Amino acid sequence: MKIFDMKQQKSSRIRWIAVAIGSSCLISSCASKSPNQNKNQASTPFIFRSLDLKQRRPDGSRDWELTSPEARYNTAARTVRAKIPKGILYFEDKPSFMISAEHATVLNDGELVVLEGTVRLKRLGVEPLLIRGDRLIWRPGLSTMVINQRPSALNKNSKIISSSLIFQQESGQLLFNGPTKLSRWEKNYSSTLDPQIVITAGNGRWNLNSGIIAAVGPVIANQTNGRQLTAASIRGNTTKNFIDLKAPVQFQLEEEDAVVDAGDTRWNFERNQLLSKAPVSASLPKGDIRGIGFIINLPKNTLTISNSCHIEQPDKNLRAKSCSWNWSSDLLTAAGNVNLKKSNSGQVQRGERMEGAFNPDGSIRFLPSEDRVKTQIKFESGDMTRSKQRSPSQVKF
């Protein structure tokens, strides 16, 4: 958006002055003044009861409008000071944003506009967005707005705050100067209820047109149930309800001793799941779980490893195609070519499915399964002579 096109700059300034003087003449009746009075009045601001400024683009389409119930215009300084300003920004000749504040200062006949006190920039349309702050610096010629006092952006279920915010009007891009904090509610934004997720990061950007959002790290996400997630950086899309977490990614469960380490991971807010095709490992009090690809279902408190599941503990290890662990109930399920080997006895159990549970000390005990399980026992060499007399081969059940 451009207020003063270089070809129209001169005529636009004349229009500014004409509006200011014309409005003030309605109040002062434009009485004739002496030369000394005119000289003193040059530095005296004109006061007019209403201000109505409109700007069009070179092609004739509407650019922006600004109104105020009371304003002062200083012809020497080419400055307008207005109270309770309200305006509309246009995009492709259609209303795009509504803007309001307590005070406005327009410098150099519109080259710079400063809005102060409860500044509100509200996007119109089916996906409303509210940008707020205490001070907004608008450079119409550059189509940029900078909020450098308490900036925030709110939509239906999220709120972003940062040290300062830059709005690039032409591209619809919001640039956040960190630290940046994203708060998210499961349903709708509430000023009285705490958010379910709070993500902190460094500098970030959010495109209001495409929904693409990104931020540099370190990234820390905290949930109200005590879970914590960290990542190197994030990139996602707010319209599609996901954020991609860049490796290394670490997920801290409610229990302090349970930590999941993973590669690039997608956080699907709509399903409330973490998904990845990268290798993953989970550190437990007594052992480790690792594999390739996983799904963490947050509402159900489950970690499912999609391929090459491997569970290791001091006295046993298990291999399977996939496995699932519910950290709330401490239940473990392994499926697909399950192979359980006990280190002390050398006993090996095989089956298509096995279920287990965690003991209070962190060890795993496997429960009897309805599926057929084959057990193989290997005897030590000292006992092999006696065993060969009783059986020509290994004992199989």
Rank of each mutant, 00 (worst) to 15 (best):
S11L: 10
A18D: 14
S23H: 13
S29G: 03
C30R: 11
C30A: 15
S32F: 01
S34F: 06
P35M: 12
S43M: 02
P45H: 04
F46W: 06
I47W: 11
R56A: 11
R57Q: 13
R57C: 05
D63E: 15
E65L: 12
Y73I: 06
N74R: 03
N74P: 00
R81G: 01
R81L: 07
I84S: 02
L89D: 10
F91D: 15
K94D: 12
P95I: 11
P95K: 08
S96T: 00
F97A: 04
F97H: 13
I99F: 03
D109W: 11
G110F: 11
G110I: 11
E111S: 09
L112I: 08
L112Q: 02
G117E: 03
R123I: 05
R123C: 01
E127F: 06
R132E: 14
G133M: 14
L136D: 09
W138K: 05
M145H: 10
P151W: 08
N157M: 04
N157I: 04
L165V: 14
Q168V: 13
Q169W: 05
E170R: 08
N177P: 01
S183L: 12
K187Q: 14
K187G: 02
V198M: 03
V198C: 02
A201Y: 00
G202R: 01
N207I: 14
A214R: 13
Q223F: 02
R227T: 02
A231C: 14
R235N: 13
F242K: 10
L253C: 00
E255G: 02
A258E: 00
V260C: 01
A262W: 00
V280E: 01
K286I: 09
D288G: 00
I289Y: 03
G291M: 04
I292H: 00
H310P: 00
E312A: 04
D315R: 06
K316E: 11
N317W: 15
K321Q: 13
K321Y: 07
C323N: 08
W325I: 03
N326R: 05
A334P: 09
V338C: 05
V348S: 06
R350A: 13
G351V: 08
G362M: 08
G362K: 00
S363G: 06
I364K: 00
E370L: 14
E370T: 15
E370I: 11
K374H: 09
T375C: 08
I377L: 10
D383M: 10
K388V: 15
S391H: 13
P392A: 15
S393Y: 11
K396T: 15
